[in-house]
Design a protein around this nucleic acid. Structure first.
Lengths: 157, 157
DNA sequence: ATGAATGCAAACTTTTTGCAGGACT
DNA sequence: AGTCCTGCAAAAAGTTTGCATTCAT
């Protein structure tokens, strides 16, 4: 944890930026919630617990800065707000999301199944892949099961 | 073209909605720009050419309605605006986007390279895929070429 | 005449920007 | 002293909503 903060600090300093208390608090919140996809507002509220004086604009500016430094990834799930994720060590972000259209749950698969595709893109399109994003919309196992057991009631459709 | 309008009309009517002139004009704009990913504002401006009296709110309401009917797909590319795409006949939307981080160009690949992955998801996770989205960020062939020829000047970095 | 749909304007939400004051070197 | 950074408030940008009017049955 401290090691990762230190790393961010060095990344910032290498570009002439400082790891101010506000920025550090923001990074800590992101570290402590690595599993989630926090919106700027989420981050703001969590950071406020450690640094109550912080302003929302600072959070936005920090997230944008971290985004430019590729420390976090700015994402959009179509719910009208941008969400931010700490990037993994490898600096590639091989997340696959399984988004259930029924219950809204989101599962993450870290496995990378796309390497062969990327190689094909490079060869056939001359396109050098830096990152990618793969989302699947569908019905999760739980909802599939629930659905199966409800079949009796659903005789009208 | 007329056939697809007619189909939308029937879809709307089956749910008790009408294909008003404004809605028809909106659908026509989407049909004529099927290759693009138009924002609501884009659609608004294009529709205005055919139906100058239309209001932006109507366009938003129409796009939302069409989205609910699964006639269009609402998408988010992370640029802060929602974009809308007519769905294909198959009701699946197998688009792959190659987004160049250098010049911002976006190429679309219609080919579906994900069928094997979807089968694997179904088997290993019990997740039934309804749709998916795959975006690659990277450097396109053109920028790659430009970059290669500029290497001489870039001796400072 | 009844309910659906529209245009306009106002409201709302998320994000960005301007600016004066503060902190650090 | 100079530059980067911050908080606040105002402004933008995108989208939604309320309401009176119009349209089609």
């Amino acid at each position: 944890m401290e090691a990762r903060i230190e790393k961010v600090k060095q990344q910032l300093q290498s570009q002439g930026y400082k790891l101010t208390p506000q920025r550090e608090a923001t990074v800590r919140v992101l570290l402590e919630n690595e599993e989630d996809h926090l919106s700027a507002e989420d981050v703001f509220m969590l950071v406020k617990e450690k640094a109550p004086e912080i302003g929302l604009a600072t959070v936005y500016r920090t997230l944008e800065l971290l985004s430019e430094m590729h420390v976090v990834e700015k994402m959009n799930f179509g719910d009208g707000v941008a969400r931010y994720d700490l990037r993994t060590e490898s600096n590639k972000h091989h997340h696959h999301h399984l988004i259930c259209v029924q219950c809204g749950s989101m599962t993450e698969i870290m496995e990378d199944w796309l390497i062969p595709l990327e190689e094909r893109l490079e060869k056939e399109y001359g396109f050098s892949v830096l990152d990618h994003r793969l989302d699947f919309q569908g019905i999760c196992a739980k909802c599939n099961a629930a659905r199966a057991s409800e079949t009796k009631e659903e005789t009208d459709k």
